[in-house]
């Protein structure tokens, strides 16, 4: 920066640390609550330094769940993980294939298909919940991993991202591959897919988080506790009525468990996360 005023630098860092603190505060309180006993949490105000029940609370939710929900948290974590992985990998796979077809072939109805996929960009699941639910229930996919994931796998965003990327691959590369004797699928596996690595990684981060954090859809299609994801399970742990009925220390432990995997993905794969966010919104 141009001015080298120590005062301004101080303000800069003060504002940033303030922002970071406000953002982190709810998570800190959550963490503290997850290490306290039920009574300590209910004593308003609860302490703001961690207690000694970290181990007990987490073991309790992981193995036995909490509140109305009998589902153990490990089971919900597994469900969330499976859902997130299937959605992320499924989306990437079908989008790679369809984008490859649309970019590298000319065939009747190509643009029609392209627009069909494009239009889905405008129809988030939230606006067509009831009919989609009906379709899934007619197909007998309620309470199944297929029902949880399949309707969320079609993704115009990923198809677009890959299409944009493929368009930047020089034509000569495909021609060189043809001269080298590679057919379309060989070219796809040997050249296109390896070259798309960073796009795939970026999309994976975004879609994993998207899948892990799904709420409305799992809420509709799961009725059995064995299919609950963390996002659903945690809501079910909160008693509808009085606060006293809610085991907040366990709910908060579950909240921590629900946050850790996607937060880790974002922090550890920050480079791809940022790329993914920026690319998918282009």
């Amino acid at each position: 920066m141009i001015e080298n005023r120590p005062g301004l630098t101080l303000v800069t860092h003060a504002v940033l640390w303030g922002g970071v603190a406000v953002l982190a505060f709810p998570v800190w309180v959550t963490f503290v609550a997850s290490t306290l006993t039920a009574e300590q949490v209910l004593a308003a105000p609860m302490p703001l330094l961690p207690g000694g029940r970290f181990f007990e609370n987490y073991v309790e939710v992981l193995l036995h769940g909490a509140g109305n929900s009998e589902a153990p948290a490990w089971r919900m974590m597994v469900n969330s993980f499976v859902t997130a992985m299937v959605i992320a990998i499924g989306k990437i796979a079908i989008s790679l294939l369809s984008a490859f077809a649309i970019v590298y072939f000319k065939f009747p109805f190509r643009m029609f298909f392209f627009w069909m996929i494009f239009v889905t960009l405008m129809l988030p699941v939230e606006v067509r919940i009831l009919p989609t639910y009906k379709v899934v229930s007619d197909l007998a996919l309620l309470d199944s991993y297929t029902g949880l994931t399949l309707p969320l796998i079609a993704s115009a965003t990923a198809t677009f991202l890959f299409r944009q990327f493929f368009l930047t691959i020089p034509d000569e590369l495909a021609e060189a591959a043809r001269v080298d004797g590679a057919g379309p699928m060989r070219f796809f596996w040997d050249v296109v897919v390896p070259m798309s690595r960073t796009s795939v990684a970026a999309l994976f981060v975004i879609q994993f988080i998207y899948g892990w954090n799904q709420y409305l859809w799992p809420l509709l299609v799961t009725t059995q506790e064995s299919y609950y994801t963390v996002a659903i399970g945690i809501k079910r742990m909160i008693a509808g009525g009085g606060d006293a009925a809610t085991e907040w220390h366990l709910v908060m432990a579950t909240a921590m468990l629900a946050m850790v995997p996607p937060a880790l993905v974002v922090i550890l794969m920050q480079k791809w996360f940022v790329k993914g966010l920026v690319d998918t919104e282009k």
């Binding site: 490859f100 590298y104 072939f105 079609a154």
Partner: peptide, 25 residues
């Protein structure tokens, strides 16, 4: 792109999964 690959069936197979899901859901 310049047309690079030709096949009357392959592109349809490639877009089929996405189209099927898009149509059904």
């Amino acid at each position: 792109k310049r047309v690079v690959f030709r096949s009357w069936w392959l592109p349809y197979v490639l877009v089929a999964p996405q189209l099927a899901i898009t149509i059904v859901f």
